[in-house]
């Protein structure tokens, strides 16, 4: 494992900690898209089907369990916690997330490496992860006030994707010289979706102003 991959995993983990911290400490999930969070549950469940059939390392197993567990915890908080659920911006979280599921699934049926359940679902999880942030970005755009923790959550999530791209570049040139188009292209699409957010995030950070995305 190279440093970019490790840094990517850590920023991913950190983004989840920031989100859970926000929800737990402030008892509020305002500005957070439940739809994006539900998509992440599906992403992790379909990607980590090999959790009990293929052992890679203790690190991998623990991280997979943490990602599945925390994504369920976040959705549970937003749906069922009696205080937190009242802060959910239901009327602004308007993205039709199920419209993302079917195209990603069809694409995975058409474009994959092996036509096996495991491989098609793994490919589906890559396609779905690439676009899962969209409901969250749409919600941010509709929010007049983005609190710091929410902004940081999305920032770290985007940083994780950027670091994974660097990880693939490193692997290709310095490790195995093997082209992996499916993760690469879906990863690049995913990273590109953050570009606009990053631009305004850095701008507001430089000006010491509150983050606001143009409508």
């Amino acid at each position: 494992m190279n440093l970019f991959r490790l840094a990517g995993d850590m920023t991913h983990l950190f983004s989840i900690i920031v989100l859970l911290l926000k929800i737990h400490a402030t008892k509020s999930c305002s500005g957070i898209s439940l739809k994006t969070q539900e998509l992440y549950v599906i992403v992790f469940l379909t990607r980590y089907l090999d959790l009990f059939t293929r052992f890679v390392s203790l690190y991998n197993t623990v991280m997979k369990i943490v990602f599945i567990g925390t994504s369920f915890a976040i959705v549970w908080y937003m749906r069922y916690h009696k205080v937190v659920k009242q802060t959910y911006n239901k009327d602004e979280d308007t993205f039709k997330h199920y419209f993302l599921l079917l195209p990603c699934f069809v694409l995975a049926l058409l474009l994959h490496n092996e036509f096996t359940t495991m491989d098609v679902l793994w490919t589906f999880s890559l396609y779905l992860e690439a676009v899962a942030i969209l409901p969250q970005l749409v919600l941010l755009q509709q929010s007049r006030n983005i609190d710091n923790l929410t902004g940081n959550y999305v920032f770290f999530l985007g940083a994780y994707r950027g670091l994974y791209v660097l990880n693939w570049i490193y692997r290709y040139f310095l490790q195995d010289h093997r082209a992996r188009w499916i993760p690469w292209i879906s990863g690049l699409v995913q990273t590109a979706l953050y570009a606009d957010f990053f631009y305004y995030y850095i701008l507001s950070w430089k000006k010491h102003e509150k983050l606001k995305l143009p409508a």
Partner: peptide, 10 residues
């Protein structure tokens, strides 16, 4: 064919 190591990523 052995499993592609990219699947070891998270």
């Amino acid at each position: 064919d052995e499993t592609d190591s990219v699947k070891d990523e998270l």
